[in-house]
Amino acid sequence: MTAFEQAVKTLKRNGYKTTGKRQRILELLYHSNKYMTAKEVQDILKKTFPGISPDTVYRNLHTFVSLNVVEETELNGEKLFRATCDVHGHHHHFICTECGITEELDCPLELLQGQLPGYKVDSHRFELFGKCKTCLCVE
C-alpha cells in the first residue's frame, strides 16, 4: 500500500469522507516532494474545482495535519504543508525557499545535547531553509 493510499485509509478510519477535493489535495501533496503554501494548493486545485475557497483548503490541510497524514512548518509567518514522510525514524528537513523541495536530514540533537549538561530536552524542531542546488544554478 502506498503512502497516499495509507493517508486515504486514515481519513476513512477517522470518519472523514474522501471527497474529490480532499483526495486531490492529498494527491497533490503526496506526488510532490516539497512544502507548499495553502495558496499554492488552492491555485492548483482551482483548475479542477474553480470555486474552491481558501477556507476549504485550510480546513482540509489542518484536518490532515491533525490526522498526521500531512506535516506543517512555518517560514516567515506563513504555514507550509507537505505529505508526511514515509522515511522511517526521526528526522528533519532542509527546505528550499525558492521551489519548496525538501531533503531529509538526520537529527542533530545528540550533537547539541552535549552543550546542555544537566538539562532535559522535552521536544525540538530543526529545519534548515535555503536554496537547493537546482535553484542556485538558476541564479
Rank of each mutant, 00 (worst) to 15 (best):
V8C: 10
H31Y: 12
G20Q: 06
S32A: 14
G100A: 03
F94Y: 04
V70Q: 03
L105M: 14
Y30Q: 03
P108T: 11
G20R: 07
K46G: 01
G89V: 05
N14H: 13
H90C: 06
P50W: 06
I25G: 04
R125N: 15
E27C: 02
L75H: 14
P50H: 02
F49S: 03
C107H: 04
H124V: 01
T2H: 05
Y30P: 04
T56K: 08
P50R: 00
C135Q: 00
N33E: 14
V8A: 05
H88S: 09
Q42H: 05
E71P: 03
E98W: 00
D55I: 12
L61I: 07
H91S: 01
C135N: 04
K79H: 13
K9M: 13
L105K: 09
V87K: 11
L111V: 12
L67E: 06
K131A: 05
C107A: 05
V69M: 02
N68W: 09
L28F: 05
E72G: 09
H90V: 10
P108L: 15
L61E: 05
E71T: 03
C99F: 05
N14D: 10
F4S: 00
L112G: 10
Q42D: 02
K17L: 11
L45T: 04
D43F: 10
L26R: 01
L112T: 08
V65I: 14
A83M: 05
C85K: 13
N76D: 15
T102C: 01
G15V: 04
L80K: 11
L112K: 10
K39F: 12
E139M: 13
A38P: 07
G20W: 01
A83Q: 02
T56P: 03
R59S: 11
K12R: 14
T63I: 15
Q113H: 08
K47N: 07
L61R: 07
G114M: 05
V87R: 14
E71Q: 07
R24K: 13
T10H: 00
H124P: 02
K34H: 08
H91G: 01
L128C: 08
E139G: 15
P117Y: 10
S66P: 10
T84C: 02
K47L: 12
K46N: 01
T97C: 00
S32Q: 15
